[in-house]
Write a protein that binds this DNA or RNA. Structure first.
Lengths: 105, 105
DNA sequence: CCAATATATAACCAATTGGTTATATGTCAA
DNA sequence: TTGACATATAACCAATTGGTTATATATTGG
């Protein structure tokens, strides 16, 4: 099952997978490089990468025996847009704080 | 002490729980009212509510035999701020640039 | 060709998840 | 006081999760 699909929210619910995405935020990386950041085994990392791939959050590029992974941030928009509908709850509260501070002067 | 702690990402990874939060976005609601929106049983809903409570995402108010649930959106800032660090990928349209460069190969 | 390297997959396991039904607890109304 | 209602918890179950070790598959260098 490649391409679009599997649940993005489930994919990012695991802290190791969020850490992987964070590592890929600025650079492509090969698996063995990513692995150095974790204490679990190489197969465990491969399983996380597969889940991220199936959620469309990362993409793979083959180069010899290396696999370069890179972020596909587009799929995170689903998360951003869901949580974005709640943003007013803290921005409003900050506005209220601002108003309160104004009134106190 | 409000049991702050339990993983917010895990709590919102379930679509039913996101739907509950969405229902609470504008109004407080009692359990039996929430229940009308779902096809699973009342105990299943109570379990979801407990998980949301333990993640600090909702709060409970007792009123006779009713339990009013209300959103505590503050805990969603953890999600918002994590995903916010990826926002530049679509606001700056770097993803389109990447796609364009790929197509030019 | 062969051994080493990089990564993925298979097979397995314990813990967790999300549902169920049955029951407990607390409150209200008659 | 009793019975219905609102909600939570208990006990149970199958499916999924996240890890493990062992193995498979490609690729490269000597």
């Amino acid at each position: 099952m490649s391409g679009v699909g599997a649940d993005v929210f489930a994919a990012v619910s695991d802290p190791a997978r969020r850490a992987i995405l964070d590592l890929l935020r600025d650079n492509e990386r090969v698996v063995s490089d990513l692995l150095r950041s974790f204490s679990f085994s190489q197969p465990a990392l491969s399983k996380h990468l597969r889940i991220l791939r199936e959620a469309g959050l990362v993409e793979q590029r083959k180069d010899g025996r290396l696999r370069w992974y890179r972020l596909n941030a587009a799929r995170l928009r689903e998360v951003a847009s869901w949580v974005g509908r709640y943003e007013r709850f803290w921005t409003e509260r900050l506005d209220q704080l601002g108003t309160l501070l104004d009134e106190m002067e």
